[in-house]
């Protein structure tokens, strides 16, 4: 199964988001590179609004991700509660 990934800028806004992604995707591999964090996962990666909000302690609109997003790979499936990257159909 091919990997999907998402890369975010490394900053104060993304730290709790990255922690949430790690918590929701135990199979994910997190690489910290200069100024960026890249998260790879086999086949599928989910980003949940609820986990991010718990971590942040405030409401979070998933589309706020766009501000600090660097790149991603895989098919994107997005609704109000969850953004999923996946290769399977």
């Amino acid at each position: 199964m091919s990997s999907v990934f998402i890369a975010l800028q490394a900053n104060e806004e993304t730290r709790p988001i990255i922690e949430a992604i790690e918590a929701d995707n135990p199979q994910a591999r997190v690489s910290r590179e200069p100024a960026m964090v890249k998260i790879d996962a086999p086949g599928r990666l989910v980003i949940r609004k609820q986990t991010i909000e718990e971590n942040l302690g405030r409401d979070f609109d998933l589309q706020e991700l766009h501000v600090n997003l660097i790149t991603l790979s895989g098919h994107v499936d997005e609704d109000d509660d969850m953004l999923t990257l996946h290769w399977d159909r």
Partner: peptide, 23 residues
């Protein structure tokens, strides 16, 4: 990311800012 490594934050910023749209 290499620009960041070389101390050039201006380039990192336009690069990542542009790339956030590329996604």
């Amino acid at each position: 990311s290499g620009a960041a490594y070389n101390g050039d934050m201006a380039t990192v910023t336009f690069g990542f800012s542009a790339q956030s749209d590329e996604a």
